[in-house]
């Protein structure tokens, strides 16, 4: 029988894959992909908790919808900044961003 723990472990794995992508990728767009995986993992967590433990209210699903909205805004703003930077320096490698030292 598939229970809550199965979903939580899948979500944890997705979160770690996303975090790995954020840490090791050079390309700023690839970093944003990793961030999307992290947010998706959180949504799976919320929906699974909602389904298995707290089905009387839809709080988890509502929270997940808020996160989807935030994710869309984040990608729009992030890509706008990436495009503007690309026009100026013709590269979006995160580790070449060294005018300001990290």
């Amino acid at each position: 029988m598939i229970g809550l723990t199965h979903y939580l472990i899948v979500a944890a794995a997705l979160f770690c894959i996303g975090a790995y992508g954020v840490v090791v990728k050079k390309n700023a767009i690839a970093v944003m992909m990793g961030l999307e995986f992290m947010l998706n993992a959180i949504n799976i967590n919320l929906v699974a908790f909602n389904h298995f433990l707290h089905p009387n209210l839809v709080l988890g699903q509502v929270f997940a919808m808020f996160i989807v909205g935030i994710a869309a805004a984040e990608v729009a703003l992030g890509l706008a900044i990436i495009l503007s930077l690309y026009r100026q320096r013709h590269s979006i490698a995160v580790d070449e961003m060294d005018i300001l030292k990290w």
Partner: peptide, 20 residues
């Protein structure tokens, strides 16, 4: 999820990839 992530976010990311 399909509307926003696949329809909007993924398309934005693909645009980003093409433009950069």
């Amino acid at each position: 999820q399909i509307l926003v992530y696949v329809g909007a976010i993924a398309v934005l990311v693909v645009f980003g990839v093409m433009l950069t």
